[in-house]
């Protein structure tokens, strides 16, 4: 048992070291004079990672697939935009983004979490589209023509970059903690069998509401960070169905229910989408649709699943050649 726990400890250390290295690399990368275009790409990817990691907490870990995360992203974006225009410090504005999205998650979750699986998914499409229509018509947010942020001072891309990096690090830490915690265990139990979970003491509604709230807060912050960077937002963008779809696709393609999967998914999506959108506007969604089909049919753990298989394959070859050389 002792051996097992030290082995586990070493495993944890490897993972912490891996994440730490990634964070440091991303942290010092801008000092090596990378192009402003690359900074923009990385920034976009980091914002997507926040939302992707957040969605995974609800969709991957807890098994509640939502097509409605654009609501939180959009509300967060508008809340931050209005806060900044009202003279708030950006961090205060992002806090409001998180709070507004969290509040919305309760209003949406209370009725829709009575529904199971696919019905919940469909209901979230309805909620999300209804919110988009309302936002398109609200006059105090500028309606369909959008909302502009007038921030004083020079545009400093690195400030945005580090904000996104900071929040995505926080998101990954929260996600890793949930995967190890007893709260996370209860979420997984709800995913596997809601009634059986209730039969050993888990309150499924409370678990779902709490993780929804957490995911919404993070997604709202992501929206806020994006809004401040973009300086102009409109309902068809931040509240658009394609935003919900992106937030759903990234973690599933990366690997739902894992810590690394949503990060990989967000990274790939952020980088590929930005590049492909310019060249072939529709090609990336075609690609992601096809990937989604392949993943549902063959590898539910997405990219992390494929990486795992690859590692297993390499290890087998390694072992074979090792035994061969010994023999």
């Amino acid at each position: 048992m002792r051996a097992a726990s030290t082995q586990m400890g070493r495993f944890l250390n490897y993972r912490v070291a891996g994440w730490g290295t990634l964070l440091i690399v991303l942290g010092i990368l801008p000092w090596f004079g990378i192009s402003s275009n690359l900074t923009r790409l990385l920034f976009t990817a980091l914002v997507w990672i926040i939302a992707s990691v957040a969605w995974n907490l609800l969709g991957g870990v807890t098994g509640q697939v939502s097509f409605g995360f654009a609501v939180f992203y959009g509300l967060g974006a508008y809340a931050a935009a209005m806060g900044i225009n009202g003279g708030l410090h950006p961090l205060a504005a992002f806090t409001i983004s998180g709070l507004v999205a969290a509040l919305a998650s309760i209003f949406i979750g209370l009725p829709t979490f009575r529904l199971r699986g696919p019905y919940f998914a469909i209901a979230t499409i309805g909620v999300s589209e209804a919110v988009r229509v309302v936002m398109t018509n609200l006059s105090f947010t500028g309606g369909a023509s959008g909302y502009r942020i007038a921030e004083h001072g020079r545009f400093r891309p690195l400030e945005h970059y580090y904000t996104a990096l900071g929040f995505s690090a926080v998101a990954v830490v929260i996600s890793a903690w949930i995967h190890e915690s007893k709260f996370g265990l209860s979420l997984q139990a709800v995913r596997e069998d809601e009634e059986a979970a209730a039969d050993i003491g888990v309150n499924p509604l409370k678990a779902k509401l709490m993780v929804h709230l957490l995911a919404a807060t993070l997604t709202g912050i992501a929206g806020g960070v994006y809004a401040r960077y973009a300086a102009y937002i409109h309902p068809q963008g931040v509240f658009g169905f394609h935003t919900s779809v992106a937030i759903l696709l990234m973690p599933i393609i990366g690997g739902a229910g894992t810590v690394a999967g949503p990060v990989i998914g967000g990274f790939v999506y952020g980088l590929v989408q930005e590049e492909l959108v310019a060249a072939f506007p529709q090609f990336h969604l075609l690609l992601y649709g096809a990937l989604l089909i392949v993943i549902i049919l063959f590898e539910p753990r997405g990219v992390t699943g494929w990486l795992g298989r690859l590692r297993g394959f390499i290890e087998r070859i390694w072992r074979k050649s090792a035994t061969a050389s010994v023999g």
Binding site: K182, A189, E192, D193, G201
Partner: peptide, 26 residues
């Protein structure tokens, strides 16, 4: 607390994790 006639384990979780949930949330 009850057991189920047709067993309903949390299938993707380990035996240990299954029991841990009962321990924490009971």
């Amino acid at each position: 607390a009850r057991t189920h006639q047709i067993t309903r384990p949390f299938r993707s979780m380990t035996t240990r994790q299954n029991v841990e949930i009962g321990l924490h949330f009971g």
